[in-house]
Simulated assay, not measured.
Amino acid sequence: MKLETLTIHTGNDGEPATGAVIPPIILSTTFERAADGTFVEGRDIYARASNPNRRMLEEKLAALEGGTDAIAFSSGQAATMSVFHALGTNSHVILPDDIYYGTRYMIESLYEHWGMTCTAVDMTDIGQIKRAIRENTRLIWVETPSNPSLKITDIQAVVKLAKAKNILVGCDNTWATPYFTRPFDFGVDIIMHSSTKYFGGHSDILSGCIIVNDNCPPELKARIRNFQTTGGVIPSPFDCWLLFRSLSTFAVRMPVHAHNAMKLAMFLEGYPQIEKVNYPGLKSNEYHKVARKQMSNGFGGMMSILVKGGQEAALKLTANLKLVKHATSLGGVETLIEHRKSAEGAHSVSPDNLLRISTGIENIDDLLADFRQALENL
Rank of each mutant, 00 (worst) to 15 (best):
F84D: 10
A72Q: 05
Q77T: 12
L57Y: 02
Y100S: 14
A35Q: 06
P52W: 01
G42R: 04
M56S: 06
D69G: 08
E58L: 06
R33A: 07
H85F: 12
G37Q: 05
E108F: 01
R33F: 14
Q77E: 09
F39S: 03
I45H: 05
P52M: 00
I107N: 12
F39E: 13
N90A: 14
N53W: 03
T80F: 13
D44Y: 14
I99F: 01
R43Q: 11
N53V: 03
D97I: 11
N90M: 09
Q77K: 09
I94M: 11
A72S: 15
A49E: 09
S74E: 11
V40W: 07
S75E: 04
T89S: 15
D36A: 04
D44E: 15
K60H: 01
G37R: 02
D36C: 10
L57N: 09
I45G: 05
R48A: 03
D98G: 11
R48L: 05
R55H: 07
A72L: 01
A78F: 10
S109F: 08
A34K: 13
S109G: 05
Y46E: 15
R54N: 01
I71K: 06
I71T: 04
A79E: 07
A35L: 03
L64C: 00
F39V: 08
E41Q: 09
A47Y: 04
A49R: 11
Q77F: 07
A62I: 01
T68A: 10
Y101L: 12
H92I: 03
V83G: 00
R55V: 02
E59D: 05
R43G: 09
R43A: 11
A62Y: 01
E108A: 02
F39H: 03
D44F: 15
A86G: 06
G67P: 15
R48D: 02
A47F: 01
G37F: 04
A35I: 15
N51I: 01
M56C: 06
N90C: 10
M56Y: 02
G42Y: 05
I94V: 15
I107P: 13
E32M: 06
N53Y: 00
S109N: 11
R104H: 12
A49M: 14
M106F: 00
F39K: 09
A79F: 00
E65P: 01
I94P: 11
G102Y: 13
L110Q: 10
M106H: 03
S50C: 02
V40A: 08
E32N: 07
G42D: 07
G66E: 10
H92V: 01
S82T: 04
S75W: 10
G102K: 15
